[in-house]
Write a protein that binds this DNA or RNA. Structure first.
Lengths: 247, 247
DNA sequence: AGATTTTATTTGTCTGACATTTAAAAGTCT
DNA sequence: AGACTTTTAAATGTCAGACAAATAAAATCT
């Protein structure tokens, strides 16, 4: 049924791949119980620790869950949107932080995707999502807010905007793009004037979403894109200058 | 430095989390060598197999790579865009196939994101990407092509379109959305007329991209969206009808 | 019948050992 | 001295066997 060809990597990686392929191909369906570790060890002709390493690999991808006890075992897991979120966010965050992705590139991607959501959000947003946007704008106006808290609120605002599209697939895809930007955004020091301008644009977006005006929302988002790129350019220039003369 | 609070899950999950957090926080930087398994076991006061399970979890997420031998060990891995692609695609694919996401929802998300790329692609596409799009259109015109091959070519066409934006972050994000749709698209049986219409729209998109006309590209993509949604609705209706009377 | 105890199954963890790989150290020859 | 070969040590990969802990089902008792 699922053999193990002599190919690449350690045994646990090969076994994990065989099981993963079986799940993707639908040979193992959701909530189905895998054979016990002992049975798998026997089937693949390896020891139980090796099987366990393979199973832990799958568990790390949320492909299976395990349960102890008599009727326990490893079960094919239905990947929830929550699971997928957190995986996407950690992957995206590390991808950006480890690959010298420029602020511009990441920023462009984020806002391009977000503008794809805006028309849908203008059409479908409910009162809750609008209220969240307003609440985050209010928070962003509080004096004494740290830059990090300001950024976190910014993320919350934009997530509410994205969620307004009422499309879980879009929300999932955007989660990575928006959240992964946060570390980069945190490198920016916001002046009072910067914040004022951002909050103003957030207000314009919320207004447009409220009256379901897709075009106005897009215009405001476009302006926010431009402004954020400017801030990023300034911040990077300042950082580079400091790097050359660190006295 | 990195202790292990009494909290949730098995030991290997806790240890994996501790190490993962250290990597995300930047305490362990790219290409840095982790302590050996024996040292980690000693540090966390667990046995070596438990440490190994934790490391395999991290390896499954491409967070570390391991090397055997004298100067071997586990090293913090620089996640490549390639690694991130395949992870995103498997996660997205399973997410869609396991959660009864409607064709409409997935399709809407995919084309919304793709339309976000189109203006950038019109502006920046190079000759290579345009040639790929033309080649795939040519392939799609071949008679006798299976539905699966047609879909695969469709994916290749759209990936070329996305890659035209020359933004690796966008390409990465879109990879999940486009590829994950393929199993759903494969449920559609394309008539000759369907294909003709799709290829015609692909041609319009390529023409628009060639002359760098962002608006024309958007219009064609919008039409393709509508048409694909229609096909999906028809296919789902046909499938449901067959399900009720499977004689 | 219902509550309690026992039992069997399964994952979680540990110990100790050996195999394999690999780089560096030691040794050897020219 | 320098280049080649051999040895060694360190690390991961794998195995075997054992016990602990959880848990559901079966058996037992009231």
């Amino acid at each position: 049924m699922k053999i193990d060809p002599k190919s690449a990597g350690d045994l646990s990686a090969q076994i994990a791949k065989a099981l993963r392929d079986a799940i993707i191909a639908g040979e193992l369906i959701v909530d189905e119980r895998l054979p016990s570790e002992a049975e798998l060890a026997d089937h693949f002709q390896v020891s139980r620790p090796t099987v366990r390493e393979a199973l832990k690999r799958l568990a790390a991808q949320s492909l299976i869950r395990t349960q102890r006890g008599a009727a326990g075992g490893a079960f094919v897991n239905r990947i929830s949107f929550e699971d997928a979120y957190v995986q996407q966010i950690t992957t995206s965050t590390l991808l950006l932080s480890m690959n010298e992705v420029s602020f511009d590139t990441a920023c462009e991607a984020r806002f391009a995707l977000e503008r794809a959501c805006a028309p849908l959000s203008a059409e479908r947003r409910n009162a809750d999502q609008l209220a969240t946007m307003r609440a985050e704008i209010f928070r962003q106006n509080q004096p004494g807010l740290t830059d990090e808290a300001f950024c976190a609120s910014d993320v919350a605002f934009h997530r509410a905007l994205v969620d307004g599209a009422s499309n879980p697939v879009l929300s999932y895809q955007l989660a990575g793009a928006v959240e992964a930007m946060q570390p980069l955004m945190n490198m920016i020091t916001f002046t009072a004037r910067d914040r004022e301008r951002i909050v103003e644009l957030h207000g314009q977006i919320a207004d447009a979403i409220e009256i379901r005006d897709a075009e106005a929302a897009d215009r405001a988002l476009a302006e926010l894109t431009t402004y954020t790129l400017e801030l990023g350019t300034k911040a990077m220039a300042a950082r580079d200058a400091q790097r050359q003369q660190p006295k």
